[in-house]
Design a protein around this nucleic acid. Structure first.
Lengths: 340, 340
DNA sequence: CTGTTAGCGCGTTCAC
DNA sequence: GTGAACGCGCTAACAG
């Protein structure tokens, strides 16, 4: 690795000043065509182009936004839904000439990661914002947009109406005649404190739907699992060690796939023996189409990134929570019980 | 967004020098405990922590490595295999206190993206390195590791022996008795010039396997498709408009899933009517286990990232090509024809 | 209108 | 424990 030429080198070899060189690259109209050609020509010879670090430093920008992982990369990125959101954010970055940085916890610390992240703005997803994270965020004076966050957190945020979606999901299950239901919910927050807000809101929806059928949340088996394939498998194992329900409702498609794998490996057919319902609407998976709640990953990603870029641009501080739509997808994994 | 406190502010309020403040954060042992406490205390009050941009600038590092997308994010990140590689790279980044930047082409230009990328090193995957890209890379004086690249490109690289893998794949297909075979290969390089090197090498393997069975490449139908679900679907459509082969061999699992979806929607059963063989070994997909060539995404990702970090560290310039293993996975999508 | 001089941003680090 | 130089490109103010 040789060392890069600097603006100085070009200035000297070309006989012009640093300013002229800078203009040649950034404001060609401010110098003569002759000067510009000469400078650019010499720059090409020496393989010079302005150092992004120095340029960004002097302009006070990083030209990068960050996606803050709430967990280690293998967990966080193991969910196809998260990956789809990231892909959508990356598209918006491209349109803005930005780069998308995946920011893992720094030595297990999210606040440290926030303090050090070389970015102009952050998107969080499913992050529980505790005091330390909030302080780190404030310290950075960065625009932040949260996905699936709380309005109370004070950030502009994007998400769905999880209570209504939970209601719809459970309502469909009940409408198909299922009464012996098990739920695979999402994990507690990273710090092990409490249920995530998404979980809480969806449960409220479940409760409402169940109440309409004369049932209550306490009457169904609930197990917690990470939003992952293996998490779903283990959750299914735990459920089956209790008894075999008629329907297993999950809060993440990727967990639903794990559940299906566990059931299949026991010779249980879906949906004949046990129905499985997912949440998210992931794509590209072979096999039976999941019966699930679809919330568009690309809409979530694009919208959150757009909001972030507009905050980066005009320095305005919206604190809006935007809801995107959701819908139930009739798939092949939810059986209609005779008579319903 | 208020403005951040600077090291100056802390120096003044605390009555110490900038140097002392810097030491308080980076080399506590170089100043007295008293000074350190006082400084850190004031820093906390003012919500100060060193600005990552300024710190990185003065240390000449970005604390970020980049994953260079050869295509737009939606295409490049639409492949679960690529995502798995990225996840593995992100893990290694975490271990090194780095961030992973996803770098899309900048206004459709990969060289521009390379020139501007705020990173200390780059990983490419499936990138055809033309002269412009090579020049941009040289101009940056950055360490680069390529995945699935050519040894001739001069970068340290990670990949499999694609010729041998192609041979193994085709050999298994032939060994199961298939003779009416169609191949779904990878797209030409972005600039539309020529077949990618991976394609070329695998085809060489096919040719060798076919020759052993008294056949030749020209005797089988080959269609090109992007390594995507929709690409696989379309490829299957094109193949079926010609005739219905006994086995469809693909060069990417995600394309194989698309092929399967196309076949299923026509009522063609797999593998009874048509066999499908993939390549990559993606995970977490429900439905039939693919018969495929498995090459570990996490090994590719981890190894390439480790190589990159060691290059960033010691400034040494290996130009080695490292091969990782691969294997045929007996799945449920390749039928054994009676008599074989 | 073309081009230059000089200072800036902010944390790090050498020499005292 | 400090003062001052440093990294590198940008840009306001100004001169020819």
């Amino acid at each position: 690795m040789g060392k890069r030429a600097t603006i100085q080198d070009i200035a000297q070899k070309s006989g012009y000043s640093k300013t002229a060189v800078s203009f040649a690259f950034n404001a060609p109209e401010k110098i003569s065509a002759e000067a510009r050609d000469r400078i650019l020509c010499i720059a090409r010879e020496l393989g010079y182009s302005p150092d992004p670090m120095a340029r960004n430093f002097s302009k006070g920008r990083h030209m990068a936004i960050g996606f803050l992982l709430p967990q280690n990369p293998d967990k966080a990125l193991g969910n196809p839904y998260t990956q789809a959101v990231i892909a959508a954010i990356a598209e918006v970055c491209q349109e803005n000439g930005y780069v998308l940085s995946i920011i893992p916890p720094f030595r297990s610390s999210i606040p440290e990661a926030v303090k050090n992240a070389p970015v102009d703005g952050l998107i969080t997803m499913g992050l529980y914002v505790d005091r330390n994270i909030r302080d780190a965020l404030r310290g950075r004076c960065l625009p932040v947009v949260s996905i699936d966050g709380l309005e109370e957190d004070g950030f502009p945020s994007v998400g769905i109406d999880d209570e209504a979606a939970g209601y719809l999901q459970m309502n469909k299950v009940l409408g198909h005649g299922h009464r012996d239901i098990a739920v695979v919910s999402l994990p507690k927050t990273a710090y092990g404190k409490s249920k995530s807000d998404v979980t809480r809101r969806r449960e409220a929806g479940y409760e409402r739907a169940l109440a309409e059928a004369g049932m209550s949340l306490s009457s169904i088996l609930m197990v917690e699992s990470s939003a992952s394939y293996s998490g779903g498998k283990e959750a299914a194992d735990r459920i089956l060690s209790d008894h075999k329900p008629s329907c297993i409702v999950t809060m993440a498609d990727i967990a639903a796939l794990g559940v299906i794998s566990s059931l299949s490996s026991r010779g249980i057919s879906i949906p004949e023996d046990v129905s499985v319902v997912g949440f998210d609407g992931i794509e590209h998976t072979a096999g039976p189409v999941l019966s699930t709640i679809v919330q568009s990953a690309s809409e979530k990603g694009r919208l959150s990134a757009s909001m972030l870029f507009s905050a980066i641009g005009d320095d305005s501080l919206v604190t809006e929570r935007k809801h995107i739509g959701f819908a139930f997808q009739e798939g092949a994994t939810l059986r209609r019980i005779y008579g319903y």
